[in-house]
Design a protein around this nucleic acid. Structure first.
Length: 316
DNA sequence: ATTCAGGTGCGAG
DNA sequence: CTCGCACCTGAA
């Protein structure tokens, strides 16, 4: 599975050209409410989707695709074949019982307040290698630079695709690269990490596929053996690629959110927060994390100029 | 200029 | 085992 951004063409969504050219390849994926495509793609679990007002575009399965959501379905343009469409449907996780999950989460007072603003987030089913690589790059980094780095990696080591885009480089391609070439993609000190991980994955010494069958704790222990993979990255991969719902990735944002809204603003270590989340949310911890993360990162825009206030700890 | 950004690996107590 | 610290790099 390959998801990378591609240069936007000048056809606006809904104009005649895009409709004409896309008509033969247009298809739909069932997506019952409250599934929210754009929220799911832009809430931070996947890099490489460019979201605009009406949809999102990226690369999937080696093809530039455009996605948009209408009543109960996701429209897909640019994908050929039933199998490819099936893979995309699985990736987008529109079949996930999002409504039931959110009803369960709403038993939590904090989430009950947040959910009206964040409803519809599904946990994608990403390709393990691509997810792992992206998460390693994202460590102690900022989103724009992460995306720039992943774009450079694709351009330099990924397969060229029709339309001038590039697919995400397979582990083999990264494994064959030099650390110097990787650093040129702005990886910085993460370059040796990614290189070592790519080599272990490509050589078969680290069988990514086998993690799927392991329970959360065991799979995590295995992932933590990889260089550049700590608690947070491991949880991200377990959640976003393997669907392990117990995973609760604790980054600075989620740490702030939990401290503020569950501990009255008192400091807690990431380990304490993980323990708390797992006890409180169980197998739905991952979804809870996404709602907290998405809410604390976007509320500034929705609430206007005034940022997060002190009284939040009381009110939420 | 200084600080921050979706952490991790290290060495020291 | 917990704690403190350095770390590529670009943008504000």
């Amino acid at each position: 599975m390959v998801v990378r951004p591609f240069p936007r063409d000048d056809a606006q969504p809904g104009d005649r050209r895009s409709q004409r050219s896309g008509a033969a390849q247009r298809s739909v994926i069932p997506a019952p409410p409250p599934y929210n495509l754009l929220r799911t793609l832009s809430c931070g679990q996947a890099f490489g989707w460019q979201v605009d007002g009406t949809g999102a575009h990226g690369v999937f399965d080696g093809r530039p695709v455009r996605l948009s959501q209408r009543a109960g379905v996701v429209h897909v343009e640019g994908l050929r074949g039933a199998r490819a469409l099936h893979r995309l449907a699985r990736y987008l996780a529109a079949d996930q019982p999002v409504g039931a999950i959110e009803r369960a989460l709403a038993a939590d007072r904090v989430l009950a307040r947040i959910l009206p603003e964040t409803s519809g987030i599904a946990i994608l089913r990403q390709d393990p290698w691509e997810c792992l690589a992206g998460c390693i790059v994202s460590a102690f980094n900022n989103i724009p630079k992460v995306e720039l780095t992943l774009r450079r990696l694709s351009r330099r080591f990924g397969p060229p695709l029709p339309g001038g885009a590039y697919g995400f480089p397979p582990a083999a391609a990264v494994a064959a690269a030099s650390e110097r070439a990787l650093r040129a993609c702005l990886l910085g000190y993460r370059a040796p990490y990614l290189l070592a991980v790519a080599r272990r994955v490509h050589s078969g010494a680290f069988p990514l596929e086998s993690l799927a069958a392991l329970p959360y704790d065991e799979a995590k222990r295995v992932l933590l053996e990889l260089p550049g993979v700590g608690e947070k990255v491991a949880d991200c991969v377990l959640l976003f690629a393997y669907g392990k719902g117990e995973a609760f990735p604790v980054d600075v944002w989620v740490k702030r959110a939990v401290e503020r809204w569950y501990f009255g603003g008192a400091a807690r270590t990431p380990a304490e927060i993980r323990t708390f989340a797992r006890r409180r949310f169980g197998e739905l911890a991952g979804w809870a994390q996404q709602h907290l993360f998405h809410y604390i990162r976007t509320r500034r825009r929705r609430d206007g100029a005034r940022a997060i206030g002190r009284r939040d700890s009381d009110r939420l």
